[in-house]
Structure formats: C-alpha cells, structure tokens
Amino acid sequence: MTTPTETQNIEQQIVEQLRLLPSDRQQQVLHFVESLLTDKMRERPVEGWQPGMSALDVSRDWVGCVEGPSDLSTNPKYMEGFGT
C-alpha cells in the first residue's frame, strides 16, 4: 500500500517530468491517462448489478428519494421545446 508521502512524491515526479515535455507530448500523456481511467471505469462492476438487469432495477432504491413531481412531463414548462 502506498503512503500519502509516497503518493505525493510520485505525483511530484510526474508533474516535474510532464513539465519537461513539449505541449503536444503533454497532450498525448493526458489522452493516455484518460484512456486508463476509461478502462478502469469499464472494469468497475455496478453494485447489485446482474446480467439482464435494467438501469431501473439497479437504481430502484433511489427512485423517489427526492421531492418533486413524480413525472416532469406533468408540468408543460419542463417539456417546452422538447421534440421540436
């Protein structure tokens, strides 16, 4: 496990090395990091999800947890410009 001090040192090293690169190479590094994060997000399973479940099935505990109209389409103001 990495300690906070070790993490800070790694981050400092990365920033120092990144600053030495020309801007086009810095952009390449950014794209690489973004692709790593995207890959990581794909690997992370959604808690409670099983094959065949819908988004509603997974989020059922959260449905209705906030106040407001049960269906925004009941208020014409929310639907202004929709579908035009």
Rank of each mutant, 00 (worst) to 15 (best):
D39Q: 12
I10E: 14
L20S: 15
G68S: 08
P76M: 00
M1A: 14
K77S: 10
D57I: 02
D71C: 09
S54T: 13
Q27R: 12
M41D: 11
P76T: 02
L36N: 10
E80V: 02
S23N: 13
V66Y: 13
G83Q: 00
Q8P: 02
L30A: 15
R44I: 12
P45S: 07
V15S: 13
M1E: 08
S73V: 00
E11H: 05
E6Q: 15
L72A: 12
D57R: 07
P45E: 08
K40A: 15
Q12E: 09
L18E: 08
R60D: 12
F32G: 01
Q28Y: 01
L72R: 14
M79Y: 08
P22S: 06
Q50C: 01
E47T: 13
K40W: 10
Q27L: 11
G68V: 06
R44G: 03
N75L: 15
L56N: 05
T84S: 07
W49P: 03
H31K: 11
E43C: 07
T3F: 01
S35G: 04
D71P: 07
T38G: 14
E6D: 10
R42K: 11
S54G: 04
V29M: 07
S35P: 04
Q26D: 13
V33Y: 11
S35V: 01
T5Q: 15
E11P: 00
D71H: 03
M79F: 06
M41W: 06
P22H: 05
E67F: 06
E47N: 10
E16S: 15
G83R: 00
S70K: 08
M79A: 03
D61G: 09
T7P: 01
E43L: 09
G81F: 00
C65W: 05
A55P: 02
Q8Y: 06
W49E: 08
G52K: 04
E67Q: 10
G68E: 01
Q8F: 10
V66D: 05
